[in-house]
């Protein structure tokens, strides 16, 4: 019977094979498979003492395995139930009743190689295992490099956003830019006015018609503000529906108030969005800072907020010029 085992050939072609006799006992083991069970002499041991068939569940006996020759099995070593091996059984047609089972690591190749300390020589020359390991390693390295680049770019993006002076939705300046401009004007001790503008009923537009409508309204409002001011003035969107205007070289109180009046007037008209009329209005609080007046930005903004609050309290759609505490 020994003659019938084509083991030298199989040892080269399938180093992870086993030959079993008709009782399911191991009578030959490929050189690599023996390395999976370093402390056991496999010869003479029943196959199912060493391995357990995980799938298909119907193949729990040697007889059942023989009936399903040629189909794929998933096995584990009894000593290490987390192990995952693929296998296929074929009958030897030499009349001996012996069967050959060939095994492979399948997708768990890396764990297999690590656990059993295998080398290239443990795999058949035509086996793709080495290429698979190469790919796992190369792809992990490439992925790692990509991830590092992504993290770096993400950091650069955040830094750029932090340094940005523009409100991306409206194209107006943002709070950072507004702080910057006001700081410059204060240190130059020049004459300027700060207008704090709050949109009334904006939340209602957002809630009833959705964010797209809200965004559209903000853009339309921004356009009106640009039209009603000069290029030297600064218009910033400093919150959801809050805007700050910084007006330079204000001629007199009348001019200052007339800008506010025009804005309120124009913002009363409904803004159309997809056939719906979005009705808002504007409340304004204004502070006029004279030349050489010693004030801090924080103070100015809080005065403007107080004036704005006054406008809201008095029924909205109006402006209040701050006249001192």
């Amino acid at each position: 019977m020994k003659d019938s085992i084509p083991s030298p050939m199989l040892d080269v072609l399938c180093p992870m094979h086993l030959v079993l006799d008709q009782n399911g006992c191991i009578c030959h083991s490929g050189p690599t498979l023996q390395k999976l069970c370093p402390n056991v002499d496999l010869i003479g041991v029943p196959f199912l003492d060493i391995f357990v068939v995980k799938r298909p569940k119907t193949m729990r006996s040697f007889a059942a395995m023989c009936r399903k020759a040629g189909s794929k099995m998933h096995l584990s070593l009894r000593d290490d139930l987390s192990s995952d091996l693929k296998a296929v059984l074929v009958h030897l047609d030499d009349g001996s009743g012996n069967v050959v089972i060939n095994l492979s690591f399948g997708i768990s190749i890396l764990e297999g190689v690590r656990t059993y300390g295998l080398s290239s020589a443990d795999f058949a020359a035509t086996d793709l295992a080495i290429e698979m390991l190469y790919l796992i390693e190369a792809k992990s390295a490439a992925m790692d490099a990509s991830r590092q680049l992504n993290v770096k770019l993400q950091g650069a993006k955040i830094a750029a956003e932090e340094q940005a002076f523009t409100d991306t939705l409206t194209g107006l300046k943002n709070r950072r830019a507004m702080d910057h401009v006001m700081g410059r004007l204060l240190s130059n001790r020049v004459d300027f006015a700060v207008m704090q503008i709050d949109l009334d009923f904006f939340k209602a537009v957002n809630d009833t018609l959705g964010h797209a409508a809200g965004d559209h309204v903000l853009q339309a409002v921004a356009q009106i503000m640009v039209e009603e001011t000069r290029a030297v003035d600064t218009i910033a969107r400093v919150g959801g529906d809050e805007f700050t205007l910084i007006l330079c070289d204000v001629a007199n109180e009348h001019t200052l108030l007339s800008i506010g009046d025009r804005l309120i007037e124009r913002l009363q008209y409904p803004i159309m969005f997809q056939g719906h009329a979005c009705k808002i209005s504007a409340s304004i609080g204004t502070v006029w800072i004279r030349e050489n007046q010693d004030m801090a930005a924080k103070e100015i903004l809080s005065d403007a907020d107080r004036a704005l609050y006054q406008s809201k309290k008095e029924g909205r759609s109006r402006q209040t010029l701050f006249k001192g505490a």
Binding site: G117, L118, S119
Partner: peptide, 9 residues
Amino acid sequence: KFDLGARIG
């Protein structure tokens, strides 16, 4: 020595 399954990086 070349350890096929070595952990690198």
